[in-house]
Amino acid sequence: MKKLFIYTLLILAGISSFLSCSKEDKVTLEKENLDYFAIINKPKEKWNALDSLCDTIYRDYGVKIVYEYTPQVIRPNDFYYPPTYDKALAYTRKVMKTLWLEPLKKNFPDYFKRETPIEFILMGGYYHGHPTNTDIAAGAGFNGQFYRLGMGGVNNLDLSNKAAVHDHVVTLWHEHAHNQDVKYGRGEIFDRISIGTYYKEAWNTKTEPQAVTDGFFRKYGGFAPEEDFATTVEHLTRFPKNDALTLINSNEKLKRKYNLVNKFYLDKGMDLHKLQSIVYDLVYKK
């Protein structure tokens, strides 16, 4: 009996040793509990001048300016390229602070409080669907989002060129309009104004006067209702009230779009005509 026990024990021990052996071969690293994507803020002792500036802006305006790209910030299947350090620093100081956030907070405090995105991405270049394709999208390419705004072309923006800077800020408000559109919806009534007459892919084959006749502020606005809405905002932000209204009064569809969009913004505490004159003065008169 005793012997039998010992033999069995021996055999089992033998088997178990083999089992453990084969199991050991398959040891894999258990990684799932590691939070690789935890966002770790840069420790203060590592801050450069731009980090300090971004921190000030965050404290003053609640907007996190992102100039460094990490896989947590940039989605993997599209191609965005970070701005150079010098360009980003100058851009943040001038465009982010002086031309966007400061006047916004001062002149439209309610609108600022409710409608300012919490994250702003600086892009060196533009959106690219392919790492080296030469075609680019002029806009930032990811502004149809709720809380995040971004602008492209920081590397090539000449801050001493007033016309270029003005155009850039106006475009920023265009992009922000997409943000507002996504957040609140431009509404069925707006969509019905030009329904069925959008140019779609052929927008670039049209002329600007043709676009106005067809009821679009720009030919690009003829691409789709989203851009129609944003170019309406852009028009009001770009041109002085009287000039803007002259064009608007020349076309019934433009008039209807203007009335809707102007009210959309006024209801939220933003007078686009006033914004226009503030932006213009800041760029050209200071």
Binding site: A137, G139, K200, E201, A202, A224
Partner: peptide
């Protein structure tokens, strides 16, 4: 297909675009 659906074609007029201008999605 998009190229074949010219402006002059009513079948073009019943198309719409998805995403943004960079997505080229009709």
């Amino acid at each position: 297909v998009v190229a074949q659906l010219t402006d002059n074609d009513f079948r073009n007029k019943i198309t719409a675009n998805a995403g943004t201008v960079i997505d080229k999605s009709t």
